[in-house]
Design a protein around this nucleic acid. Structure first.
Lengths: 168, 168
DNA sequence: CACACTCCACCAAGTGGTTGGTTGAGGATG
DNA sequence: CATCCTCAACCAACCACTTGGTGGAGTGTG
């Protein structure tokens, strides 16, 4: 792993642990085993580093959504995967929630978050717009309680399938 | 409004505007029209001020939930009121989301958030635990898009009522 | 040599918090 | 009435420390 990657990972972990509130360049650099001034060799400003973290997160959440199956099958698959992802990698979804809030103030982050949501929408074609928004809202809220997320999303899936249990 | 209240309001608005990331005692004091050292006359530490803001928020979100009607009627009323609250006072729910994230690191905030959720649960008696968790998750997620929140919650309500439209 | 990389020392601008002191209202005391 | 005292409210100046960021000098490598 290059130093640059190490810095991004360190920043990512710091955000998950302390939030943007507690993101300190010196701490990130120390975590990566270098002096904080060396960090500036890789990232000119703090914002540059944050942007890189945003990119890193974007890479992580690329859903391997395929267009196969009926819309209900795709829904089951989608929610099943997202629920598992939240349970298995809660720190990723903490960072996503931090980014959601940050996107209210930072246009750059907002664009990334919007693109991320767009990805969800495109993997839920065939559903009514309202249903899609409901799914997005619930996924975001569910990531607050990682241990309950899979069950919550399963329940939502079942409701959207008119009562038939989610098959994923 | 006393200076003390003014400081709490100023801090609350600062958190809604800049997040905890951007909360600065000098800015809060200036907003309240006093010197930052005077702020310390009212709140010994930054954490004391934050605690006061948490209390203020708690007061704001007391739901006027009544136990009247069937569980479905209560659900409609509850989601209708929450949806309207999110749309009308988005800044309140931004602060709540900031607190949700902060509660991961601050036990005191965590206790408050937990109590808040408990209030929701008690106003949804009669529903299965999974359904209650689904409602909580969706409400939290929905507050990210205040303008869509009422519609999203209406959709959820309808699903939970087996397809019959929400009456609130 | 040129170049990427690294650290040390440093800086200006804050940060939360403290100190010492002023003001003015209110309550006793004479 | 005048005088003294108390106390909350308030501020200017200051403190120790941290912050993001810079400059320069040294290192190794192609």
């Amino acid at each position: 792993m290059s130093k640059r990657e190490a810095l991004i990972i360190a920043a990512y972990e710091a955000i998950a642990r302390e939030g943007f509130e507690g993101l300190r360049l010196r701490a990130v650099a120390a975590q990566a085993g270098i002096d904080h001034s060396t960090l500036h060799h890789y990232f000119g400003t703090k914002q540059d580093l944050v942007d890189a973290v945003v990119g890193h997160v974007t890479d992580q959440v690329r859903t391997g959504a395929s267009a196969d199956g009926s819309r209900e099958e795709r829904l089951c698959r989608h929610l099943g995967m997202v629920g598992a992802a939240i349970a298995e990698r809660p720190e990723l979804h903490i960072v996503l929630r931090e980014l959601d809030l940050r996107s209210l103030r930072d246009p750059r982050t907002r664009a990334t978050v919007a693109a991320h949501e767009e990805g969800w929408r495109s993997s839920l074609t065939g559903f009514a717009r309202g249903e899609v928004e409901l799914v997005i809202a619930t996924v975001k809220g569910a990531s607050l309680h990682p241990e309950q997320a899979p069950a919550v999303l399963k329940d939502l899936c079942q409701l959207l399938r008119g009562g038939r249990p989610c098959t994923f």
